[in-house]
Amino acid sequence: MRTSRDGSGRAGRGLLLTAVLLGSGLLGPGLPGPAVALDATARIPVPPAGAYRNAREAVRTGVRDYNAGDKEGAARALEYAAGQGHALALWKLGRMYAEGDGVPHDDLKAFEFFSKIADENADDGPDSTNATVVASAFTALGRYFLDGIKGSYVQPNVERAYDMFNYAATYFGDPNAQYNLARLYLDGTGVTQDPRQAARWFNLAAEKGHPAAQALLGQLLMNGQGVPVQRARGLAWLTLARDAAEGPKDQWIVGLQEQALAATSERDRADAQAQVDGFYRRSATARAR
Rank of each mutant, 00 (worst) to 15 (best):
Leu240Gln: 01
Ala58Asn: 03
Gln214Phe: 04
Asn67Leu: 13
Lys249Met: 13
Gly278Lys: 12
Trp91His: 06
Glu120Pro: 01
Trp201His: 11
Gln251Arg: 15
Glu207Val: 11
Ala68His: 06
Gly209Met: 10
Gly30Lys: 03
Gly73Glu: 02
Ala182Asp: 05
Val191Ser: 04
Pro48Phe: 08
Arg183Lys: 12
Arg183Glu: 13
Asp65Phe: 13
His86Met: 07
Gly33Ser: 13
Ser115Asp: 10
Gly209Ile: 09
Leu240Tyr: 01
Ser128Gln: 00
Ala199Cys: 13
Ala82Glu: 12
Leu221Cys: 10
Glu72Thr: 13
Leu15Thr: 12
Val254Trp: 07
Arg231Asp: 00
Arg269Cys: 06
Arg76Leu: 03
Gly278Gln: 14
Leu93Glu: 01
Pro45Thr: 10
Glu266Arg: 12
Ala131Met: 11
Ala35Arg: 12
Arg282Pro: 06
Arg160Tyr: 04
Thr170Ser: 09
Phe138Glu: 00
Ala272Leu: 11
Arg183Trp: 07
Arg5Phe: 12
Leu88Ile: 10
Tyr144Gln: 01
Asp70Pro: 00
Asp268Ile: 05
Gly247Trp: 11
Leu21His: 08
Thr285Tyr: 12
Thr264Lys: 01
Ala19Trp: 06
Pro32Trp: 01
Leu220Ser: 02
Val229Thr: 15
Arg76Gln: 14
Ala82Met: 13
Asp268Ala: 10
Val254Phe: 08
Ala244Met: 13
Ala213Lys: 03
Ser8Tyr: 11
Ser265Thr: 15
Ala284Ile: 05
Leu238Arg: 04
Pro104Ile: 04
Trp91Ala: 04
Leu240Gly: 00
Gly188Phe: 03
Gly218Arg: 03
Asp124Lys: 14
Arg196Asn: 09
Leu261Ile: 01
Arg269Leu: 06
Leu216Asn: 07
His105Pro: 03
Leu146Thr: 03
Ala42Asp: 12
Phe114Ala: 05
Pro32Gly: 04
Leu181Ser: 05
Ala288Tyr: 06
Met1Ser: 15
Tyr185Lys: 04
Val103Met: 09
Ala40Asp: 08
Ala182Lys: 03
Thr285Asp: 15
Lys249Ile: 14
Phe145Cys: 06
Thr132Lys: 14
Gly148Asp: 05
Arg287Pro: 00
Gly209Thr: 12
Asn130Gln: 13
Pro45Asp: 14
Leu15Trp: 13
Ala245Arg: 09
Asp187Lys: 08
Ala206Phe: 07
Asp243Gln: 15
Ser8Gln: 15
Ser128Arg: 02
Lys249Gln: 15
Ala213Ile: 02
Glu207Trp: 04
Glu112Cys: 06
Thr129Asn: 11
Asn121Cys: 10
Pro156Ile: 09
Ala77Ser: 13
Gln178Lys: 10
Ala131Lys: 14
Glu258Leu: 13
Leu204Ser: 09
Gln178Ile: 11
Gly7Trp: 08
Phe145Gly: 02
Pro211Gln: 04
Gly73Pro: 02
Ala286Lys: 14
Glu246Gly: 07
Arg282Tyr: 09
